[in-house]
Computed example of a mutant assay.
Amino acid sequence: MVSDDGRPLTLADIARLAGVSRSAASRALDATAPVGGAKADRVRAVAAEYGYVPNSWAANLRRQRTGLIGVVVPRLTDTVMATLYEAIVEDASSRGYQAAVVTTGDDPRKELDRGRALVKQRVDGFILTTARTDGADPFLLELKEKSIPHALALRTDGGSPAAVIDDRAGGEMATRHLLERGHRRIAFIGGPAHASSSQGREAGFRAAMEEWGVSIGPGTIHHSDFSVDAGLEITDRLLALAEVPTAVFTANDSLALGVMSAAQRAGVSVPDQLSVVGFNDTPLAARLAVPLTSVKVDFARIAADALDLLLSPAATDRPAVQPHLVERASVASI
């Protein structure tokens, strides 16, 4: 990528070779807001021919941007969060941005401290998957007070721009699937009570049970922390009941994995004695010894919607992404 006199090609050289102004060449090669038209196509063709790569660092300095997006997640040991973060990295990169992640353990104090550290790095904005509906979210409140660009993903606080799944619809389809196969003693294991995703999935569970005229008895609904260990611990309690559930719907696949592990440990067959449905359809779901029926979520779409909300000033709230059920071997009819 050098000129005839041996020096590196500059943006001015590309503009001259394409027969356009320097500003027009700059706009054509701006990955964050690419323009269309014959001139822009010609600029990109010349840049590709000569192997020219725009100096995004210099461009960001001119715009007073760093090209860095902060991503805040509860934990990366959660396959859902890791999958979403990878999707954000890929989509952000295609727009000329990089993503830096911090984990919080769903602890508001850690979120505040670690989020502020990213603010000091002058990130251009935040995507948060840690939103709470209980008001105990000081970092999100600080972002609002200081007008720092941000968008939420997977969870919502009910006020900020958010890219979410139709959790209620997913909860209904999972529960209805079990009801259609004859199950009536169905337990629900949710995530934290402050997470809108868990709330929506529980609402869907309740709606489907009511639709079918099935009462929700004591000990039917449980809240947890979305972890495998929580699924194990709660299932141990369920299996000790006088009337053991014939099926369990969990708010994510990690909880479902805990349910299946506890069942195996207790000598309870899945699905012959206990049917299980998860949520998110993470890659592991199809690879278990008993492949897991799960509600599939399009994480690439969630990531793209969140970035649109964060980076496009004119962007409006996106409709909730519609999930669908992936049927596998973890559910039996009774």
Score class of each variant (00 low, 15 high):
Met1Gln: 12
Leu9Glu: 13
Thr10Arg: 05
Ala12Asp: 13
Gly19Gln: 10
Arg22Trp: 05
Ser23Trp: 04
Ala24Leu: 10
Leu29Ser: 06
Pro34Asn: 15
Gly36Trp: 03
Ala38Ser: 05
Arg42Leu: 09
Arg44Cys: 05
Ala47His: 12
Ala48Gly: 09
Ala48Ser: 13
Tyr50Arg: 13
Asn55Cys: 12
Trp57Leu: 08
Ala59Gln: 03
Leu61Glu: 04
Leu76Asp: 02
Leu76Ile: 12
Ala87Asn: 15
Ala92Thr: 05
Ser93Pro: 00
Ser93Val: 04
Ser94Arg: 11
Arg95Ala: 10
Gln98Ser: 08
Gln98Leu: 08
Ala100His: 05
Ala100Thr: 07
Val102Lys: 02
Thr104Leu: 00
Gly105Arg: 01
Asp106Arg: 04
Arg109Met: 02
Lys110Thr: 01
Glu111Met: 01
Glu111Lys: 00
Arg114Ser: 15
Ala117Tyr: 11
Val119Ala: 09
Val119Gln: 10
Arg122Leu: 11
Arg122Asp: 15
Gly125Asp: 09
Leu128Asn: 02
Thr129Lys: 03
Ala131Ser: 12
Ala136Gly: 05
Ala136Ser: 14
Asp137Glu: 07
Glu142Lys: 04
Lys144Phe: 13
Leu154Ser: 02
Thr156Trp: 09
Asp157Ser: 08
Ala163Lys: 00
Asp166His: 10
Asp167Met: 14
Arg168Lys: 11
Arg168Val: 09
Ala169Phe: 11
Gly170Glu: 05
Glu172Tyr: 01
Met173Asn: 03
Met173Ile: 13
Met173Arg: 01
Thr175Phe: 00
Thr175Gly: 11
His177Asp: 03
Leu178Tyr: 03
Leu179His: 07
Ile189Ser: 10
Ala195Asp: 12
Ala195Val: 03
Gln199Gly: 09
Gln199Tyr: 08
Gly200Thr: 07
Gly200Cys: 04
Arg201His: 12
Arg201Gln: 14
Ala203Gly: 02
Gly204Cys: 01
Arg206Met: 02
Ala208Pro: 00
Glu210Asn: 14
Glu210Asp: 15
Trp212Asp: 02
Thr220Tyr: 02
His222Tyr: 15
His222Lys: 10
Ser224Arg: 11
Ala230Phe: 10
Glu233Arg: 09
Thr235Gly: 07
Arg237Thr: 15
Thr250Asp: 11
Thr250Leu: 05
Asn252Ala: 07
Leu255Cys: 12
Val259Met: 08
Met260Cys: 15
Ser261Gln: 12
Ala262Met: 13
Ala266Asn: 12
Gly267Lys: 12
Pro271Gly: 13
Asp272Ser: 12
Val276Tyr: 03
Asn280Val: 06
Thr282Ala: 11
Ala289Phe: 11
Ala289Tyr: 15
Pro291Gly: 03
Val297Ser: 05
Phe299Val: 08
Ala304Glu: 13
Asp305Asn: 09
Asp305Gln: 10
Leu307Lys: 04
Leu310Phe: 09
Pro313His: 14
Ala315Ser: 14
Arg318Ser: 04
Arg318Glu: 09
Pro319Gln: 14
Val321Met: 06
Val321Asp: 01
His324Lys: 07
His324Tyr: 11
Leu325Thr: 04
Val326Phe: 05
Ser330Cys: 14
Ile334Trp: 08
